[in-house]
């Protein structure tokens, strides 16, 4: 991995900001191929790019004598996307694992293969952020991705590939500065959880606490739709007489339909069970299967919840209820 500095004057030539996201400039695009049209609002996460809220799977058509089925494939054109550590981590450590686990999700794979990720250090954590509580951090980086730290005058860059050809010398002093900056930002965030915590949650399934914690939840699902790691979907169909298509769209464990069975039985009948599922899936069930938690501490759900439910507080309260902690 190489690293260096680009003078601000220069980095503007390659990177531009738009609506709080960073994009490559026209000039860079020429060099790096087509730019991915991820003009998202910041309130949505980067998952939209790989796992859109609606997506055609195949199309069918009565062609006079027989049914014709046409698979829909994504183009898989090269693209480049800068994300904050929490969103990038959601892709690299969570959705990649889920969708690229056998059987591989083809559309996700085609998009993912063509996507180059850049990670942008997070210099202004919000009051909702708690990435450090769940193993990430505002300076979290990954081998595969370019890492940028925007500074007043210049940009610190770490990674591999051609972009670094434009960098000037870095040096030890700058490294130290970076570390100091990282320390400063991290100090603002809550301290990490004890590492045994996720496993211990297992004992909380029957807790009385859940009644209390879930009471104010209205099962609206805003939290799950905006979460960069929630990946549940439903498959539905649209028809016009003798043609139509099958597609998938987001679904949420907060909804009654989600667990509704033929015959009308619902194993998660009330808010409590749905709420518990969401949090235990995030913090425990996923951990059991993939060895990490299904939450990157981005705080989107906390900001979105109309009723002030905070996963960080749920974690704290469960921890408090745990006599061994």
């Amino acid at each position: 991995m190489s690293e260096g500095l680009i003078a601000k004057r220069k980095w503007w030539e390659w990177i531009e900001t738009k609506k709080d996201r960073i994009f490559l400039t026209e000039r860079a695009k020429k060099r790096y191929g087509e730019w991915f049209p991820a003009e998202g609002k910041v309130v949505k996460s980067g998952k939209e790019v790989l796992f859109p809220s609606g997506e055609e799977m195949y199309r069918y058509l009565w062609a006079g004598e027989e049914w014709k089925i046409e698979e829909r494939e994504v183009s898989g054109e090269f693209s480049f996307l800068f994300l904050l550590p929490c969103e990038a981590r959601a892709i690299i450590e969570v959705t990649d694992k889920v969708f690229l686990h056998l059987p591989v999700d083809k559309n996700y794979w085609l998009r993912r293969k063509a996507l180059s990720l850049g990670i942008l250090a997070c210099l202004q954590p919000e009051p909702t952020c708690f990435c450090s509580l769940v193993g990430g951090g505002p300076f979290w980086r990954d081998e595969e991705a370019l890492f940028l730290v925007p500074r007043k005058e210049d940009i610190y860059i770490q990674g591999e590939g051609e972009l670094l050809a434009f960098s000037e010398e870095g040096g030890e002093k700058i490294k130290e500065e970076m570390q100091a900056l990282q320390q400063e930002v991290e100090n603002e965030l809550p301290s990490p959880l004890p590492s045994y915590f996720p496993q211990e949650l297992y004992h909380h399934f029957e807790d009385e606490e859940w009644n209390e914690l879930s009471w104010r939840c209205l099962n609206c699902g805003a939290c799950t739709f905006l979460c960069p790691t929630c990946y549940c979907f439903d498959i539905q169909v649209k028809m016009w007489g003798d043609e139509g298509y099958r597609f998938r769209c987001y679904d949420s464990c907060m909804y009654s339909e989600y667990t509704m069975m033929a015959g009308g039985h619902n194993p998660r009948p009330t808010t409590k069970e749905k709420f518990r599922n969401r949090f235990l899936h995030k913090l425990e069930f996923f951990y059991e299967r993939y060895g990490r938690s299904l939450c990157t501490g981005c705080g989107r759900c906390i900001a979105a919840c109309p009723n002030g439910i905070s996963i960080a507080r749920v974690i704290e309260e469960l921890k408090e209820a745990d006599p061994d902690a």
Binding site: G221, F225, A304, P306
Partner: peptide, 12 residues
């Protein structure tokens, strides 16, 4: 067109 149909409005 910005609506993500999370139904928070309905549930609130």
């Amino acid at each position: 067109s910005r609506c993500i149909r999370c139904y928070a409005c309905r549930n609130a």
